[in-house]
Design a protein around this nucleic acid. Structure first.
Length: 549
RNA sequence: CGGGGCGUGGCGCAGUCUGGUAGCGCACCUGCUUUGGGAGCAGGGGGUCGAAGGUUCAAAUCCUUUCGCCCCGACCA
């Protein structure tokens, strides 16, 4: 985008949209607008600067963290730049909505947001200031909220289809915006930031963090008899690799004991040696906000041994374990003594697990949790997300309405976001070649570009200008390259910009009284006689639109 | 916040180790030639070397401080 002259950077994560970039942005916004309107949502515009009081009332002033850009105004009032607008919209709702007769309603806006990202990167993909469409639905009951959610979900599918994107809807973690249920719309692309798993068989797709691991009963049942405990010397042998090699056992017998620090004190977590702990799942299961690996002193406090020799036996802290642990007999784990491990450990007899849960990262050998099919691991760019918020904000901010029976009830909310700039970036990421961008016609700043190769020649200029006039009359948006540059220069630039249809006028094409038509997406050239050109181009453009439906 | 790197004409960089005339490519301006895949020749303009302080006869270069940016990590819509 930088090279094509679409954006320029002002500071870290803050960009200027140049005319070309802005056109692509606006095209995207319009598609979003059309589909939102079609889905029955109503556009409004909320303020970017928001009072801190409102955020304190919702509790997110403290919770949101340094990503929220805060400042004081001249009256020393706390303020912030909106990173998202649940507070403001809920405030609006509680002032305006009083009766079930006013519901359901869905309000949206397209607006600049600011999030003070720790590390902005990938250009406009993760900017600090960015344009976002956010919609909020208000319903009287769960059923209505479900319908609103589905309507947005469907609108998102048609938006991204019209943008020419290859995408999947993925089940997602709800993050700090909160709520109960959520899908992310991911564009499949190797340059994405998010790891996703998708099923090769069914429509299942999920964030790697969120992907459920299914333990099929009896599948990996360990049928060994319980043997007696045995402590062995393992001098300086700490890592899984070293232990399995040293004791010549399989990593499936080995149990990792990880000590984590939470706001409620330390916790021990057991995971099979060849598995990786999923911290997101763990913090959900423990229901804690703070979760970090314990430092060596804490590990020593809890286990009585230095790092690398922790085990479950005799621990005084809470022990949780991954489901896979349940199946293992005669485990190997640290002995809570320096340079010692212990063999033939069994749950129930030697230690007690307080809670079993799905705590590990999914692996490539795991089956799809829906259909059991094979999973594919890949990268994705998140371009949109839909949330069921429930009554999280309406309760804390007291946005209530009177139902049919005159009872005061909190409004059920949903919120739905699309990163406009990120959509454009994802489109370019997914559709480009070594020469530059290949825009889908729906997003391209222009539908057609006219290249008069020798514009200093009167005949070339005249034919090109006539064509421009005709195409405009047909309602097409046309970019006319009137620079007196060399042909190679103009051709390269046209490729870089990525306008889908190119009409070239030159002395050469005029020899046969024709104009050359070429699509950016392939190499085919067509010579069309001058008077038939406008109609032919109109048809080509139409067929490009049709292919996006 | 941890690790690494970079700030020198508009852009990209060399020069820094070993202090001594600020240099190259692109872009820009003028002229001539050239014109279907980023032209050639000739001439020309443009830089408080990120900032501040220090060492020195002398600092882009050495020392201190500071600001900005990039990459990796932790974190995260």
């Amino acid at each position: 985008m930088l090279r094509a002259g679409m954006i320029r950077k002002l500071a870290a994560g803050i960009y200027t949209y140049l005319p070309f970039g802005l056109m692509a942005i606006k095209k995207t916004e319009n598609i979003v607008r059309e589909e939102m309107d079609r889905a029955g949502a109503i556009e409004l515009l909320l303020p970017g600067v928001q009072p801190g009081d409102l955020w304190m009332e919702s509790g997110r002033w403290d919770y949101y963290g340094p990503e929220l850009l805060r400042f004081r105004d001249r009256h020393n009032r706390e303020s912030c730049l909106g990173p998202t607008h649940e507070e403001v919209i809920t405030d609006l709702a509680r002032r305006e909505i009083h009766s079930y007769k006013q519901l359901p309603i869905n309000l949206y806006q397209i607006q600049t947001k600011f999030r003070d990202e720790i590390r902005p990167r990938f250009g406009i993909m993760r900017a600090r200031e960015f344009i976002m469409k956010d919609a909020y639905s208000f319903d009287i009951d769960e059923e209505g909220a479900g319908k609103s959610y589905e309507r947005m979900y469907a609108a998102y599918e048609s938006i991204f289809r019209r943008c020419g994107l290859i995408f999947r809807a993925v089940e997602a973690d709800t993050g700090p915006i909160g709520g109960s249920f959520s899908h992310e719309f991911m564009v499949l692309s190797n340059s994405g930031e998010d790891d996703i798993v998708s099923c090769q068989n069914c429509q299942y797709a999920s964030n790697l963090e969120k992907a459920e691991v299914i333990v099929r009963e009896g599948d990996i049942k360990d049928i060994e008899k319980e043997k007696t405990l045995q402590i062995v010397d393992t001098p300086e042998i700490r890592t899984i690799d070293e232990v399995t090699k040293f004791l010549s056992i399989s990593p499936q017998k080995l149990v990792k004991t990880l000590i984590y620090q939470t706001e409620h004190g330390p916790v021990a977590v057991l995971v099979r040696g060849d598995h990786e702990l999923n911290e997101t799942k763990l913090s959900n299961v423990l229901n804690v906000q703070e979760l970090t690996m314990a430092d060596p002193e804490t590990v020593f406090d809890v286990t009585g041994a230095p790092m690398g020799f922790a085990g479950a036996i005799g621990l005084k802290v809470r022990i949780v374990a991954d489901l896979a642990i349940k199946e293992i007999k005669n485990m190997v784990m640290g002995a809570n003594k320096n340079d010692k491990h212990v063999l033939n450990v069994n749950e129930g007899r030697d230690f007690h697990v307080e809670q079993y849960a799905d705590l590990r990262m999914i692996t490539s050998s795991d089956p799809c949790p829906r259909c059991g099919g094979k999973l594919r691991f890949g990268k994705g760019i998140e371009v949109g997300q839909v949330f069921k918020l429930g009554t999280k904000y309406s309760t804390t901010l007291k946005a209530n309405f009177l139902d049919k029976n005159g009872r005061e009830t909190p409004i059920i909310m949903g919120c739905y976001g699309i990163g406009i700039g990120r959509v454009v970036a994802a489109i370019i990421e997914q559709s480009h070649d070594e020469n530059g961008i290949i825009f889908p016609v729906s997003i391209s700043p222009f539908e057609v570009t006219i290249l008069p190769l020798e514009i200093h020649e009167a005949t070339v200029r005249k034919v090109a200008e006539n064509l421009y006039q005709h195409l405009n009359d047909l309602g097409l948006s046309v970019f006319f390259d009137d620079r007196d540059e060399r042909p190679g220069f103009k051709l390269k630039d046209a490729d870089l910009l990525g306008i889908p249809v190119r009409a070239t006028v030159s002395l050469r094409t005029l020899k046969s009284d024709s104009v050359e038509i070429k699509l950016r997406s392939n190499q085919d050239l067509r010579l069309i006689s001058i008077n038939k050109t406008p109609k032919a181009i109109k048809e080509v453009v139409q067929s490009l639109y049709d292919s996006l439906k």
